[in-house]
Amino acid sequence: MVFRESVKKFTGKINEVEMGVGERAIKIGGENVMPFYSFDGDIGNRPRIGMEILDVYPESWIGSLKEIYSDVANNPVEWAKYVEKKFNPDFICLRFEGADPNGLDKSPEECAEIAKAVAENIKLPLVVAGTNNHGKDSVLFEEVAKAVDGKNVVLLSAVEENYKSVGAAGGMVYKHKVVAESSVDINLAKQLNILINQLGVKSENVIMNVGCAAVGYGFEYVVSTIDRIRLAALGQNDKTLQMPIILPVSFETWEIKESIATEEQMPEWGNQEERGIGLEVSTAASLLTVGANAVILRHPKSVETINGFIRELTA
């Protein structure tokens, strides 16, 4: 008997979403199969990698990273230009740590100026990440969206508490991309997409952050959530879940004790930098294989490794 390879066909397809403008604009999504399953159908656009930078000096980052960025880390524009030139990721994620009300509490106007300057000085698409303070983020994103008008920036992110203002300013008035963020809750992920859509933001302008965790921190639940979302999007052709997924991996993996503890504190855990890279790489690789269309990473070595991983799997 002749062997016949069985092929899994789905009726649904993930939306294709464009980030940025000009020759370095990128597209994410577009697949109609499970991640990297090129033997089943069209895997769409290659998963993308973004690199994280901050609006302030990266005080809490590990020594080796501070060293790499020592000449530029006080100036977000120079920092962004350096990352673009030196590491050439698919996009840059500018994170407004300095806007946090529990920290420097920079004004939305000041942040908007920075975002504008960064966007104007790089060719790569820009993702702007907020503070995780829902009230602050809603005014922050309104100002940023206005300042970077025409740059097709990704706003990370709108949550249940502020999706109206973020969605209205970001997705409707200034036509940027809005990330709908839920925290590992499949029903809320769907609900938030419906609400943002009912607000008037078109589905093709929405990306999802369905919640992220570092490996070892409830990670199986994250994986099964993404898996179920993808199966509903593809298998049930659920249009309210067909948005591509972006996950800020570095926001999680560099915050846990396994990457914070120094070698002096935990000699048996070995080199701190290697640990951090290991956590970032294993988290990102796992999330990409379950359905993330874009990940945000911090360490250049992680970017290089994950790039190779994607290259091998899409070759």
């Binding site: 029903n187 809320l188 609900q191 419906i194 609400l195 509903a232 879940l241």
Partner: peptide, 12 residues
């Protein structure tokens, strides 16, 4: 389980 639940499922 033919469709995934969301609070607004009746609107769709």
């Amino acid at each position: 389980g033919n469709i995934l639940y969301a609070d607004s499922f009746l609107d769709l």
